[in-house]
């Protein structure tokens, strides 16, 4: 493993034509609106786990120092690196406000969404380490192969199963019954939970918390009739019983879902068959 340290700042860099590249603040801050005039910007160093398989068979660490503002998220700093220093830095992102689930990463050793992690909350005085989420094959830099994750999701039959004729109006559901599975409907399939789970790191066959959360969402939906089938699937040796109640998943969830609790409820339902 090679270690390459290349601290640079956007403002010091020269474009090939010799013209100075602009200060990075425009890329790092949406606009001046809503900010106090005395808001100080600050330097932050990102220590990023790089893997560029077309260039180097091994992964390495690389550091970048960029200018940031107090409302900036880690995603803004990653963009500053990509847009002003090294265009080859590769990561997924889309909505940039914590709803699409593209940018789950391991940030200072903890799984979070880069777009929900504010730099000022990450102790920017020290280098911030950024790595791909664990337990899934790394494709390039911070991008992992999500296919095994989605394969587990698909296996739990994550869709409403009903019998009989479809009614002409809506199926009735009381607010209490609706509340029963509300928490697990918030899942954005970012894989922060599954890839924080030590059981999943050691056993990639384990369904993982996200798949169980999505099974829970239907098992406890009063309209659904597929609960018994899903419990049968999750009773597998790679199913819920592999969960060791470590709570990493609950801590990692950017949507605040009580993931471990949901897994416990599925375990309980398996024993009592009451759901």
């Amino acid at each position: 493993m090679s270690t390459e340290i290349a601290p640079e700042t956007g403002s010091a860099e020269q474009a090939p034509g010799g013209a100075p590249v602009r200060e990075p603040q425009a890329a790092a801050v949406a606009s001046g609106r809503g900010e106090r005039p005395d808001d100080g910007s600050f330097d932050v160093t990102l220590r990023i786990r790089r893997y560029l398989p077309e260039k180097d068979a091994t992964a390495y660490w690389e550091e970048f120092t960029v200018r940031a503002n107090r409302t900036d998220r880690l995603l803004d700093a990653l963009h500053t690196v990509k847009w002003e220093i090294d265009g080859s830095l590769t990561f997924r992102r889309s909505c940039a406000h914590g709803i699409c689930g593209s940018d789950a990463m391991r940030i200072n050793g903890r799984n979070r969404l880069a777009c929900k992690a504010l730099l000022k909350d990450l102790d920017p005085a020290k280098p911030i380490t950024v790595e791909p989420i664990k337990g899934l094959p790394v494709v390039k830099d911070l991008v992992v192969d999500m296919e095994p994750f989605f394969a587990s999701y698909r296996e739990v039959m994550p869709f409403l199963i009903t019998g009989g004729n479809t009614p002409s109006a809506e199926r009735r559901q009381s607010p209490e019954d609706r509340a029963r599975y509300d928490d697990t409907t918030k899942c954005i399939l970012c894989a922060a939970c599954t890839s924080s789970c030590p059981v999943f790191w050691n056993d990639g066959q384990y369904f993982g918390p996200a798949a169980i959360v999505n099974a829970h969402r239907f098992i406890f939906d009063s309209r659904d009739e597929g609960g018994a089938q899903r419990l049968e699937i999750l009773n597998d040796k790679e199913g819920v019983w592999r969960c060791r109640t470590i709570f990493n998943c609950t801590e990692a969830c950017p949507r605040g879902i009580e993931v471990t609790k949901a897994i416990q409820e599925v375990k309980r339902a398996m024993i009592t068959r009451a759901f």
Partner: peptide
């Protein structure tokens, strides 16, 4: 019918 969890009125 596809399962969307709409918020509900008191009568469901």
């Amino acid at each position: 019918h596809m399962g969307l969890p709409f918020n509900r009125t008191p009568d469901g």
